[in-house]
Write a protein that binds this DNA or RNA. Structure first.
Lengths: 216, 216
DNA sequence: AAATGTTTGTTTGCCCGTTCACAAACAGCG
DNA sequence: CGCTGTTTGTGAACGGGCAAACAAACATTT
């Protein structure tokens, strides 16, 4: 059913979570089968792209019929390693960090921030049911199974934090600090820079007067 | 000096804020000139790409010399319309919305959330110095100069909110709700979906064991 | 069981963005 | 002022992802 993982294009990878969410909702609504052109209206992605994406994971559908929703949910769930109870650590318990802890990916019960760290002694304790430890005790609290971190720290301290995380075995990092940083080759970093996003949004909005656009 | 705005590639647009931040820092550090290969080490973007990006705004540099930092700061500042005091409205004063208000793009003094809206009467008042009004009074509080909004509302209510915003003259929207939505043609929407970002990060991190990657 | 209509998976061509590589242009210096 | 070394800007090749189109495959109906 599922192809061996050859090379899946980065663009496709970024769309998997969208697909997964959509078919999950369909399943909850009691829909048992779906065609690519109908799904296209839901996720706003061309049906040709959808079929090409799906086909890169094997033959999930049937001609003249469509896709079984259950099949898709299972396939994407396996791909995304849902139900593997990913334990995520958070570094930086400021305004943004606190908001993330309160939210804690409620939508996905298997993605959980399990502990947080900060250098400010005033921040230590428990926030939204999650313990906050001193950043100095990072290595002592990490288990070998933890390899994912979210960073909500000031840009200035980011390089040092990333260095410490790598030393502690973290190899997947999502950060909100805009400072580009050199990292170890096995580390994957995803930057989310809110100010940049906003500025480039404003630029395109001003540029194309009269033509709207959805920017992904 | 500055080219008339022809077509600037979307990829380039997304990099402008990075460049702007980098050259601003250089200026603060007293650096007066910079070469493309040196800048490449700072922003982690190939020097060829940097030169091509810069050249799409005119001839900003001098052969055998490099770029005058002042020239770059001016050019990117003009491009991004810095100092135009963009007034931004926020809809949804939950955990994430509150964090955004506290932060309020402090790094950029000309990007400001000036007012917020929520449907919950308990949320009304003032948060971080910013007034929070009832969402029902949206149209009454907006001025014609306001055309940018940030959404931190539940997915379910997003379509209705976007519809109301468009009716009130908003045409640039940054949203944190993952639900894809149909919008008017003149509206530009940028989605930031934290769960999706995290899931695709985990997928690539698991996929490429032994090969790291910086995902932008 | 055959005929018909529908939908997938894939092929093909296209477009955008990145990278390479080099000629032209300029700074620095003797 | 001419010479040398350096760096830009860009033409050309490359690669990846996207949209269209179609043959093959399956469901459905008679």
């Amino acid at each position: 059913m599922l192809k061996a993982r050859e090379q899946v294009s980065k663009a496709t990878i970024r769309r998997i979570p969208l697909y997964y969410r959509a078919v999950q909702q369909l399943q909850q609504q009691g829909v048992s089968r779906i065609r690519s052109d109908k799904l296209s209206e839901i996720v706003h992605i061309p049906s040709a792209t959808i079929r090409r994406d799906f086909s890169s994971f094997g033959e999930l559908g049937k001609s003249g019929y469509g896709y079984e929703v259950t099949t898709l949910v299972d396939a994407f769930g396996k791909l995304l390693d849902v139900h593997s109870k990913e334990a995520i650590i958070l570094v930086g318990v400021g305004g943004l960090g606190t908001a993330l802890m309160q939210n804690n990916f409620r939508r996905n019960p298997d993605l959980n921030i399990t502990m947080a760290f900060d250098t400010d002694p005033a921040k230590l304790g428990v926030v939204a049911g999650i313990p906050v430890y001193s950043f100095a005790t990072l290595a002592a609290h990490l288990t070998p199974a933890m390899h994912t971190a979210i960073l909500a720290v000031p840009s200035a301290s980011q390089p040092a934090v990333i260095h410490a995380l790598e030393a502690a075995g973290i190899d997947a990092i999502l950060t909100f600090a805009p400072k580009p940083v050199a990292c170890a080759p096995q580390t994957t970093i995803r930057y989310i820079d809110l100010t940049s996003e906003l500025q480039s949004l404003l630029f395109t909005a001003h540029q194309k007067v009269g033509h709207g656009a959805i920017v992904r």
